[in-house]
Design a protein around this nucleic acid. Sequence first.
DNA 1: CCGAATCTGAAGAAATACTGAAGTTGTTCA
DNA 2: TGAACAACTTCAGTATTTCTTCAGATTCGG
Lengths: 225, 225
Amino acid sequence: MKLLIVEDEKILSDSIVSYMRHENFTCETASGFSEAVEKIELFDYDCILLDINLQDGNGLDLLKEIKANNKMDGVLIISARNSLSDKITGLTLGADDYLPKPFHLSELSARVAAIIRRRNFGGSNILRFNELSIDLQAKAVFVNGKLVELTRKEYQLLLYFTYNKGRVVSKNAIAEHLWGDEMGGAANYDFIYTHIKNLRRKLMDSGSEDYIQSVYGMGYKFTAS
Amino acid sequence: MKLLIVEDEKILSDSIVSYMRHENFTCETASGFSEAVEKIELFDYDCILLDINLQDGNGLDLLKEIKANNKMDGVLIISARNSLSDKITGLTLGADDYLPKPFHLSELSARVAAIIRRRNFGGSNILRFNELSIDLQAKAVFVNGKLVELTRKEYQLLLYFTYNKGRVVSKNAIAEHLWGDEMGGAANYDFIYTHIKNLRRKLMDSGSEDYIQSVYGMGYKFTAS
DNA sequence: CCGAATCTGAAGAAATACTGAAGTTGTTCA
DNA sequence: TGAACAACTTCAGTATTTCTTCAGATTCGG
């Protein structure tokens, strides 16, 4: 899952990134209004953590812009202001949740997870696809009720497939989602081949069909239902 | 058996009521501090499910008031907050148990049932997991009835695991729960490794299975039942 | 049939986890 | 108060697991 943290207090931004990386989110940052606009136009994020008190503009305007651009990213507003009007305005403009400073990082994490769950998976903690089921809370994957032990990357990969079910996802998109900035537009995709191979093998060894369909020259399509 | 659910998130409150009714509890709700005080003064409840993060006041104050009024109601604290101090304060003030959000309704139900059983049959506050038992009042841990001497951190760690039974807890979350904000997103987790090692050793030396499962790259999962 | 894309197993590199011991802090009790 | 002890944290070295790279095999579309 990929996040954009829009926050100009470097210390806070860094600690959010550090925490969320450990929670296995892919994180990118923007320290200002303009940088955020740029990144949001270029990339897809599962959730944008938006501090509405930026130096170089009003975060609510940015929010307006995100929503006007028909971007489907989730948005969590972070604010030092406790004013009810900001909260209401934010939620009216389409933010998914609101978190006043100061906050516990674990609460931030829980809320972000909730937003993503709500937007991508209908709010459910357990996803089912044919003989496959995924418990988001326990971070566990089952085939016919039997636990399959996946590594971090394999789990992230599977999750990315599930919410792009039926769509072809390019290797570029996968790289961007699982690795962020530094790997997007990589020269080769050997590491993706390897992870896909391992994921396929683990699932099929446990008795699952192969729902990861290769689409020559395009990418992969997850075909379970 | 009659419950009072003090919770201002209507969706959560409704789903608790719906679930608990099926478990044959009589349910009433209060969406705020003042409403709760009123109801508690007027009626007797077997157990009060108290969210300590209310809009209109601190839930811990309400708890203090319940206990000061010599009400004998059992109290289960529900909290999104993760600060250890809240937990400790809550239990010190006389709460019977503590359940962090998010939780499974089945777990809530089990804990409520346990509180009621305990209070009605004069038992002490004891959690049981296979050959492990934890006396919350005495803050003592037993393996097959034999006392295991744990340090404070080890005890807190074990307790935190039991609260999150079956879920993967990240080292971040552990750090934040046991040490508070300042450790969130810490650079290294050496101290967690050490405490986990010591806790594991003490429990296993006493004849317990190792219920603390390491999940590479994600954290730990407590697997007893 | 050719070149490009994809797949595979194996090996090296990197990240994560564990351990014992040493250093530091805090508590207890004379 | 301060010596003795317990608890906590840090550190350095080791073990384990995962990630990435690579070379060769296979498949695919034209």
